[in-house]
Design a protein around this nucleic acid. Structure first.
Lengths: 187, 187
DNA sequence: TAATTTGTACAATAATTATTAAACAAACGG
DNA sequence: CCGTTTGTTTAATAATTATTGTACAAATTA
């Protein structure tokens, strides 16, 4: 079989993998186009500049620029400097584990912060009514305060989870490799 | 202060909390409207039927029906039967921890399944080229196979994480309550 | 069985979100 | 400096996604 035929097959295989990669990112709320940008960078053996990427994903310069910003913000892509070239170059952060943890920790913190802000607004009102009112209003206020306190326990837990993820403590409990894999590698 | 004034204040406080709840669900890819349906059910002291919810969130019957289906699928809402009433009634699953775990485990499995399917398609091609070709194609195929194997380690880890979450094993490592809280409750 | 109630499917519309072309600003090289 | 290259902003357009009204089917009652 000719070398060209092989290269063509490889490209098709890559496209399959890039599409799947993009789709998994869609699960987590990323646009398919942005996912494809990441996919292209993931499989590229060298850093790519904006124009390279634009050609690969067949999108406008502006879209690629936007997509890259999003990927840089979540640290899934890193900007690298290339000697003797004015253009910015980009590489994918290939460590899925790191990407996953980054992404996820961010969401947990964001969630908590949103609820905390709302609670700070609502709590004084509820406490006032619980203290001053009687009958139905008092009952409702007390009920809602209880709900609120209960949900705080949840956020307390997610924050401890986030910290365990961030500090890599999680890997003490759920190791990166299983014992079998260690044995295999030790051989 | 009058009882009505208190009730009005309470309602305003609730709206703040419902909005925040809806917004946090938006973080995880749920529509604000669907989030509000959940919020309304979360703060309702009794099961609500479709028409009740429709009035509360000011949406069409069809939209509420769709939204409820989504919430039922992710098990954030439960359908309950109410004696002497033909209408379906709904209550919110209030255990955030349970909701979080359900949601998250689903995503992890979905992610893995997507990538696995793509890999099953791509792997035979890569292996064939790695075995039969020479030079550049062979190098690329080997490189991609290596990437693929490396990513399998990640999915192996996320599956072990998912299992630890599903079996509640995770709470051995990251307890639901801290020691301080236990002390406080023991008093 | 006919009449009514209830929830859902579907096709049309509205709203949101992504994408683009074009104008612009910043950085550089001559 | 002035012209050129590079990447971003912006306002308009395109594509996607959510929402709705209507029609319908299933279940219920009289």
């Amino acid at each position: 079989m000719s070398e060209d035929k092989y290269l063509q097959e490889l490209e098709e295989a890559r496209d399959v993998m890039i599409s799947a990669l993009a789709q998994t990112m869609v699960i987590y709320g990323v646009t398919p186009s942005v996912g494809r940008i990441y996919g292209v960078l993931y499989f590229s053996e060298k850093p790519l500049n904006l124009d390279d990427i634009k050609d690969e994903v067949a999108m406008s310069k502006a879209s690629v620029s936007n997509g890259l910003r999003e990927l840089l913000e979540t640290e899934m892509v890193i900007k690298v400097w290339k000697k003797g070239d004015r253009k910015d170059h980009y590489i994918a952060e290939k460590d899925f584990m790191k990407n996953f943890l980054n992404f996820f920790i961010k969401k947990l913190r964001q969630e908590r912060s949103l609820i905390m802000k709302a609670n700070e607004q609502a709590r004084p009102v509820l406490e006032e009514v619980a203290a001053e009112a009687e009958g139905e209003p008092k009952k409702i206020a007390e009920r809602d305060l209880k709900s609120m306190n209960h949900s705080m326990e949840y956020f307390d837990w997610t924050m401890r989870l986030a910290n365990a993820l961030e500090s890599n403590e999680i890997f003490e409990y759920i190791p990166k490799t299983t014992q079998e894999e260690n044995d295999k590698n030790d051989k």
